[in-house]
């Protein structure tokens, strides 16, 4: 389904979606962009939010179950209650094509058997409305180097393209169509000249990407020979071992599961899944104290190999969408493009 929507009608569209919970990028009081709930004054802007919409599909904290003990006389009973995510239809507007692509990558992880029901309930209830990037939202965007593009469709249910006074609206899934049908009167059929314009805008947008990693597939192959290289020690010297690069990454999905106690007598608590990161030492530390990844070098290596070698070996896709957040936000300037370039050229 291909339509156009006058830009001035966008707020109308949002208003008509009364049975959906709606998120879109908004600037907070401090000038920072976040995916926030719609508030009646909603416009779309091509800015990179600090945290990707991963926070909606894979929230930082997710209660998996609740448990409680009770005692009747001498008999103790233990009750374990499954807690599933609320089944509320949700729309995220203004998703960057790379962020939607990241959801498509997360789908691989959480879809592989056995399926992760928590992720899937949210994913199936969420409609992602992508907005093609014209111009790129950050100086460090490099989506075109990792088999993506500023107008990629993977993961999106609808892709919007800004044509000046209107959006070109391309629906990609049934979920996308439902969203358009909910406000039918606002949309016009797309005309051939719109289609032509979209193509031109898309081609132009690719040229605006400022950073490039040449030969990403070759990097992937090269990494297979680099595991034992002292290279990683050098590259990781300045790493602070914080979790920024992974927490703000749209495709990083590692998590921890812990029991959190609410009450001790009688016992009552919840089992919670939280984001975790390969950059923390406790991520892999055995109970004995033995740690297969004992230093910053092995942890930096894990992050890069997971994204550019291991994931490629299993799914034939990069687990990096080239959003550049980890580059922009690294407090010590570790630049994934530069490191991978060094890998590519290592020993040459």
């Amino acid at each position: 389904m291909e339509k156009t929507l006058a830009k001035k009608d966008f707020p109308q569209w949002v208003k008509k979606l009364t049975s959906w919970k709606i998120y879109l990028p908004k600037k907070d009081a401090g000038g920072r962009w976040n995916y926030a709930e719609a508030d009646g004054e909603d416009v779309l802007e091509t800015r990179q939010a600090t945290l990707p919409p991963k926070t909606i599909l894979f929230p930082q904290n997710e209660i998996l179950l609740e448990f409680s003990k009770s005692r009747k006389g001498n008999a103790e009973t233990l009750e374990v209650k499954e807690v599933l995510p609320p089944a509320e239809p949700t729309v995220v507007f203004g998703v960057r094509p790379c962020e939607a692509k990241a959801a498509w990558l997360l789908d691989e992880v959480f879809a592989s058997e056995p399926r992760d029901i928590y992720y899937w309930m949210r994913r199936e209830n969420t409609t992602l409305v992508g907005l093609a990037c014209t111009p790129p939202p950050s100086d460090n965007c490099f989506c075109t180097s990792v088999e993506g593009s500023p107008h990629a469709e993977e993961g999106s249910d609808i892709l919007l393209t800004d044509l000046g006074d209107k959006y070109y609206v391309r629906s990609l899934t049934a979920k996308g169509e439902a969203l358009i049908n909910a406000a039918k009167g606002l949309f016009e059929e797309a005309k051939p000249e719109d289609r032509k314009k979209v193509k031109a805008v898309h081609t132009e947008s690719e040229k605006k990407i400022q950073r490039e990693l040449k030969g990403a597939r070759a990097v992937s192959e090269k990494l297979k020979t680099m595991f034992d290289s002292p290279f990683w020690d050098e590259e990781a010297m300045s790493c602070l071992r914080c979790g920024i690069c992974t927490y703000i990454c749209p495709s990083c999905h590692c998590f921890d599961i812990n029991d959190e106690i609410i009450d001790t007598t009688p016992l009552r608590g919840k089992r919670v899944r939280t984001w975790d990161t390969c950059q923390f030492p406790d991520f892999t530390m055995h109970s004995s104290g033995h740690n297969p990844r004992p230093d910053k070098a092995s942890r930096l290596r894990q992050r890069l190999l997971h994204k550019f070698q291991y994931f490629v070996q299993v799914y034939d896709k990069f687990m990096c969408v080239g959003c550049g957040r980890c580059i922009t936000m690294c407090p010590v300037g570790i630049d994934i493009i530069k490191v991978l370039e060094k890998v590519r050229d290592h020993g040459a």
Partner: peptide
């Protein structure tokens, strides 16, 4: 082999050796 595990189903990302 044993490594630290949390999910048991290849999703939480910590017990990997290579891919």
């Amino acid at each position: 082999v044993e490594n630290k595990m949390k999910c048991g189903i290849g999703k939480c990302g910590r017990c990997n050796i290579g891919f």
